[in-house]
Nucleic acid binder design. Structure first.
Lengths: 224, 224, 224, 224
DNA sequence: CATGAATGAGAGTTCATTCAT
DNA sequence: TATGAATGAACTCTCATTCAT
């Protein structure tokens, strides 16, 4: 499965015979994707510093030098990986919130499911973990991540919480003031499964369900 | 300030000029501590792989070779750092819970303050962050950490939650079943401040206060 | 300006549209020349080892792979450059000496002017400098250079010196025995301008004029 | 034979027991010298770019990493080589001129012998050749070389020439105006032997003797 | 015990050369 | 024939580890 391009967004296929003999145009993108996939696997297994580009190249099925045709250097590869992979992650959540008409309790459940499906499992989880682990050493990346993922995610939560207040479904504004509290268990779950999966696996969905229950009650839910 | 030895145990200073040149038995321990302190500073700044032993030695005020008189290799130093530093962290919490006689709500507040003071700030936070970042690459260390810190911490929470249930102060057993929910915001705070302190600092104490409010309400608190 | 083909030989331009797509037989030669020109520029700027074939290709306006259709490898390109470019340099000098009827002093002046115009300035100087710098690493090339340029040049000088003796214009046979003494300042000038042009430029022509004066006097010139 | 420290200048030996246990102090210098010697051999054989540090290390009898304890990088090694080796070269010439009391013709002969002995043969010749070959790619080095060697050398020549004029031994001031003419044959000899030693060796001393003869006559020598 | 110079395996990166299109 | 993406050998430089002093 490819990491990038999760949304079925049609990538503009270059018009046939556009240039001189530009046939590979698509192969180029596929190869780039293969490299990013390989990089994700390698980086999330070994971390940035311990990942050898030899391994990335091998996994991607290309020669080591080929990496440099697509990315300036190891760091650029890492950055591209984080930036391009994470981008699409929040789109569906945005869409979900925008078009939702049920109760805020239901909306919360749907969002948590989305979160669990799309972020807490699969390659995205590895990326989040990577970000958590290496972020301190890549300040710009942390800034990017904050701007493109974190702040947008928190804004979304605030929006949902405000919706609940507006509709009289919630009575506490805690989630508006501290949206982090809503995602905290998800972060914990990612971290937990990154560290202790082998020792004591955590049932992420059960945890999130319990969290939702706690949250609704804590926020003064009433089935208006 | 020394990282280890948080308990104020007075370390016997060896009588000056004990032997000919035999470094006083205890100087060994002091030096070991200096190395661990230096290692904590270095590792939490740069991560495991990017930390040069040259820097650790310099910070500790010893020669590079000396490190090897105290630790087998870089990894052993890292392991010792995590293991020895974290040990004392939970002792006070244990003591607090054992000897507490107030309401569970108050106990919870005291525990959170303790958490904030001792784990979310200062060197321990760096260690937790280090564990989060590098843990995946040190499975044994994760096992150790789980056994000595995580499971003990969660047991403590379960104990407090059960106490609340037993005393009729809480009506929900969610915290008994998912004690992780109680610490999740603390984890989030550590991670946040590790990544985004410069972009958007998080008021950890306010967050934890809000969390406590949410938690008590969510767990069906009543001032019996 | 093309480096090679200093003689104004008109090269027959092939009739347009000779075949189907067969690049006109002469376009090949033009392209080869373009590559050699590009190579001269690159090699004399960066030296052999530091010259990237990428740059040569770009300067020549061809693809990198195309270079290999014209030259076996980088070294062959370098060799061809030296060999083909230097060839024509001595022809005019030969002609000048052969057809000269004035005094040997005048001949010497004409030769020096020729030398200054054709060797000490322009692309040829770059080539000579290249030969001086890289020659030690290309022994065969040094042999070639010696055979085709150096020994012929020295022979020419000997011939002129002998002419002066025969005509009674000179009394010393030093220049016959050590013709190198005659060109030494030219070599120095090339080297000097290659190294110190920016620090302390050398007036090549003034130097050569002084050298001629010294030389004539030193060789016992008399205006027979 | 060691390249550096040609003059018997006593290198300050560190006072015994100066520091804590600083024994190697001298070994350090010896090792540095070994590396410089190895570097000279390697660089003058293969040129800068083609010289592998592996070879330098092997020749010097040290590990590759050791090179970096003495020199920042390859370029620094090259620079140090040129700068330190060339330094002492002109000292004796200075001394010779300062303390000479014979005729200028004799002085010239002595200087040429000195030149032949010290610069045109042995390791210094390799260095000069190296400078000629690589100088264009190391502009700062060329500036250094000009300032420390070339301009001082030319000044010395001017001084000798002026001495000749003052004493009435010479009548032409050509050598004062163009001191380069005096050394040109030496440069030529270095170049020649670097390129054509195998094809047609040049008798440097005979060449210089002839040059001296030419020079004296050309400069209007008279045995005042 | 302590030192820090020395070691050398290993990694990222470059670039001459190849070859499918 | 021309292309230029792909290759991978080879290089410089780093740094954990060792060991003579």
């Amino acid at each position: 499965m490819s990491v990038v391009g999760m949304s079925a967004a049609g990538i503009a296929v270059p018009a046939a015979g556009s240039g001189r003999r530009r046939a590979p145009a698509m192969a180029r993108e596929a190869r780039r994707r293969a490299i990013l996939d390989a990089a994700l696997a390698a980086f999330s297994t070994h971390g940035f510093a311990e990942t050898k580009l030899d391994e990335v190249a091998r996994r991607a099925g290309v020669a080591k030098g080929t990496l440099y045709l697509y990315f300036t250097d190891k760091e650029a590869l890492f950055r591209a990986l984080v930036e391009e992979t994470i981008a699409a992650a929040l789109l569906d959540a945005d869409a979900l919130v925008a078009g939702f008409s049920g109760t805020t309790g239901e909306l919360l459940e749907r969002l948590m499911t989305l979160l669990a499906d799309r972020v807490l499992e699969g390659p995205a989880a590895a990326l989040v973990r990577l970000m958590l682990g290496e972020g301190a050493r890549f300040p710009e990346l942390a800034v990017f991540y904050h701007g493109h993922v974190v702040s947008r995610g928190l804004a979304l939560i605030r929006q949902v919480a405000q919706r609940g207040l507006d509709r009289g479904e919630l009575t506490s504004d805690l989630a508006v003031r501290f949206p982090q509290l809503v995602v905290a268990p998800a972060i914990l779950a990612v971290v937990w499964n990154g560290l202790f999966a082998a020792v004591e696996p955590l049932d992420t969905r059960a945890l999130l369900a319990a969290h939702r229950e706690l949250l609704l009650k804590g926020l003064g839910w009433r089935d208006s």
